[in-house]
Design a protein around this nucleic acid. Structure first.
Length: 179
DNA sequence: TTGAGGATTCTC
DNA sequence: AGAATCCTCAAA
């Protein structure tokens, strides 16, 4: 949280919203039932990226992190755009409001140009493109744990965290999602 | 081999 | 509230 996701072409943003998915102990995790072709990178090296395709049109990106359990990862849900904003705007079909560029897991991958080609990329070295940097900004002192969004199982543990008051955090649907 | 459902977003 | 849209995996 509060670290920076950067692309080689200059696009970058601060990570202001994340969710944790915790392997075999988490029914909502793609890795819940063990390793498959799709989720293989969740079982690969920590610090690499797990990118998945969903709803027939969207990509979402995770940082693989086994701190709690094997096959775990952190879903990147929102960025505050820092640099390369015009580039992001192009990628997002000219969307004007900066708060809509990266405020959602599939929005931020579209804005940053992240797709299945980058599944498994090393986020620490940045050798394949995306890189996570620490500019010294500390994570929030008071955790803002809340329920995860868009899942149908494993809804109990409040494993979503965001920077309180940040305008680029994604908006929670007002109604509980159908299903 | 089949088909239900999905860590979503956009528009109506 | 409904559509877009395709891939994965469990079940048969």
């Amino acid at each position: 949280m509060n670290k920076i996701l950067a692309m080689p072409d200059g696009r970058s943003g601060r990570i202001v919203e994340v969710e944790a998915y915790c392997g075999a102990e988490d029914p909502a995790a793609h890795s819940f039932r063990g390793q498959t072709t799709r989720n293989a990178s969740m079982f690969g090296e920590q610090g690499h990226m797990y990118v998945y395709f969903t709803y027939g049109m969207h990509f979402c990106a995770n940082a693989v992190c086994w701190e709690r359990a094997p096959g775990s990862g952190v879903l990147l849900r929102a960025l505050e755009p820092l640099t390369g904003v015009e580039r992001m705007r192009e990628a997002r079909h000219g969307i004007e409001r900066n708060t809509l560029l990266c405020s959602g897991p599939a929005r931020l991958t579209e804005a940053m140009g992240i797709d299945r080609e980058l599944d498994g990329a090393d986020l620490v070295l940045g050798s394949e493109g995306p890189l996570i940097l620490d500019d010294g900004t500390p994570p929030p002192e008071v955790p803002t744990a809340s329920p995860r969004i868009g899942i149908s199982r494993g809804i109990d543990p409040p494993w979503r965290w965001h920077i309180e008051g940040n305008a680029h955090v994604s908006k929670r649907p007002s109604r509980p999602r159908a299903r």
